[in-house]
Amino acid sequence: MTGFILRRLGFVILTVLLSSVLVFGATHVLPGDVATMILGREASEQAKDSLRQELGLDRSLVVQYGSWLSDLARGDWGTSLSTGEDVRGVTLERLSNSAMLALVAFFMYVPLGIFLGVIAAWRRNSYIDQVISAGSLAFVGLPEFVTAVLLIAVFSRALHWFPSSSAIAPGTGFFSALPSLILPGLTVSLTSLAYVVRMTRAGTAEVLETDYVRTARLKGLSAGNVLFRHVLRNSLLPTVTVIAAGVGWLIGGLIVTESVFGYPGLGRLVLFAVQRRDLPLIQATTMVIVTIFALANLAADIMYALLNPRIRYR
């Protein structure tokens, strides 16, 4: 088991390293001169040259990559080109804001998604299954920016239950921020909810077809026993992986949602960085997100292995 975790951890590190190559490459190799990008097209050739020198752009790419990576690892993430702020400070602060929002969303859609998915599978082809399945499909097709605008129109403009802007002040605590988190949390949840429902339903329906569930039923066990002891134990295993993979969706959703609600999270920071072509900020935020995504998958792999005796006892 320890060997398994170490192997997966090594894999995570490799993935993050390779991603760093891609991030670095995307920001340096792709068409477009960095100096022009920063200073604008009208800047003098001389100014561009001096900037290049300052940024170390005249050195070979490998050397540049090496020093960038070692700076990144040592915690020196550079200064923002557009605001002059310390990239690390602003990224981590926004990260904690996004974590609050993600947490709210996570607790909204994961339990509910699993619940609805299991219900739909258990009552397959019934009226309730059709409502859940069709509903989840409809939400999959609804982009976050549409959901967000509609939710604001109803719950904020019409009903005045929640604020329409979630632009919280820096350092706001979780509970004072909570009212501002509900609508964006709900927005992010709806798309991810549909995803979890569909995957849970598929996984559970598959387990319900197995021989061992038939055995359990023919043992005369109560429906609850069959469901909780025999079905869920097996069907929720793949769901763990599905939820981890869904973190990618969640992050994508956060980028859009945070920008609609003006919420000062990591997603909005990424968008800001991209719009301003703020290279150090793009690199740092992207690497943070990639690392989180990889760690989420690692956690899912470990949980999967812990819950599955076929991996646990090999």
Partner: peptide, 11 residues
């Protein structure tokens, strides 16, 4: 390893 929207934005 990248969330799709993020990678698209960076590229």
């Amino acid at each position: 390893a990248f969330p799709a929207l993020l990678l698209a934005m960076v590229l």
